[in-house]
Amino acid sequence: MRHAGWVAGGAAAVLVAAGAITYAVADGDDSGTRAPAADSADAGFARDMAVHHQQAVEMSYIVRDRTKNTEVRRLAYDIAQTQANQRGMLLGWLDLWELPKVSADPPMTWMGMGDMASGKDGSLMPGMATNTEMKRLGTLDGKQAEVFYLQLMTDHHQGGIHMAEGCVDKCTVGVEKRLAQGMVASQQSELDLMADLLHQRGAKPRD
Rank of each mutant, 00 (worst) to 15 (best):
V72T: 15
M108N: 02
G112K: 11
G160N: 01
D105R: 13
T67Y: 04
Y149C: 02
A84L: 13
F148I: 09
Q144C: 01
C167Y: 00
V72W: 01
R73P: 07
Y149L: 04
D115S: 15
R73N: 13
A80K: 00
G159W: 01
L90C: 12
Q187H: 10
D141S: 06
R87G: 11
T139C: 02
Q151V: 03
V102I: 08
A195V: 14
H156R: 09
M116P: 03
M125P: 00
V175A: 14
A117T: 15
T67Q: 02
D192V: 12
C167A: 13
T70R: 14
M116T: 10
W93Y: 07
M194E: 12
K101E: 07
G182L: 05
A180K: 05
N85R: 10
W97V: 03
D95S: 15
R178G: 02
G114S: 07
E58C: 04
Q188D: 14
M125L: 08
G182K: 14
W110K: 04
S123K: 11
A164F: 09
H157M: 06
P100G: 15
C171Q: 07
Q83F: 05
M134V: 10
P126F: 08
R74Q: 05
A117S: 15
G138R: 01
L179P: 00
G138M: 07
K120V: 08
T172V: 08
E146N: 07
Q86R: 09
V72I: 07
L94V: 02
Q81K: 13
L91A: 03
E165C: 01
M163D: 01
Q181I: 03
I62S: 02
R178D: 13
C167K: 10
V102R: 15
A145D: 00
Y61S: 04
T130W: 05
L90K: 04
A164D: 04
K135C: 02
K143M: 07
V57N: 06
T154V: 02
V173F: 04
G138P: 04
E190G: 13
G142D: 10
D65N: 13
P100N: 09
